[in-house]
Amino acid sequence: MESKQAELEVSLIKKMMEDTRKLNIDNGVHYIFWGILVALGLLINYLMLVFKFYTKYIGFVWLVMMVSGAVADVLIGKYQSKRSKVSTYAGRILTSLWLASGVAMFIYGFVGSFSGAYNPIYICPLIATSLGISYFTSGSIQQLGWLRSVSFGWWAGAIVMFVFPGIHTLLIFAIMIIMLQIVPGLLLNKKSKELLMENA
């Protein structure tokens, strides 16, 4: 084999690998799905507290919403993975990361507060801290600097909610969910659609 041919082969291999690496981009559907669900839950939670409407059932409302959300998410994930033409290692790591993050948030949200370990108002900053870790890692895996930067927003918000707790925490968290979860989800979705068009 000639050296020139070898160089050509190496550049072909690099190009193919680079093209596949680009496929690691998340399509953002899960961000949007959970963002809408949690923002809705926060609004319902806020209104129940303000109007003192069946406040003892707040935990139950969250439990129903989160469990049905998780079931729907698993079904969506299975449907998508069966139909996806390709799956990547990075995609598998991202799924594991968000799954682990979801379990941690479930423990913070339900076990932590139901056990009386802390005031339920601190669920929001705890979850925001956890989301910060997930966004930072997710952004690093996908090599998306802007997504990694979103984590600083989560951590800054967590500090504010820890220092100034109150009923308004729910509204702050709802705004954070819209700005730092739904908007990035929409951006990821747009980017993944553009990439699909490029590869079509």
């Binding site: 072909l12 596949t20 996806s84 033409k85 990547t88 995609g91």
Partner: peptide, 17 residues
């Protein structure tokens, strides 16, 4: 070589892909 280069960066890939 191209097939291997694609597969090495993926977990699994469909025939059409």
């Amino acid at each position: 070589t191209a097939i291997m280069a694609v597969l090495v960066g993926t977990d699994e890939a469909e025939f059409n892909f």
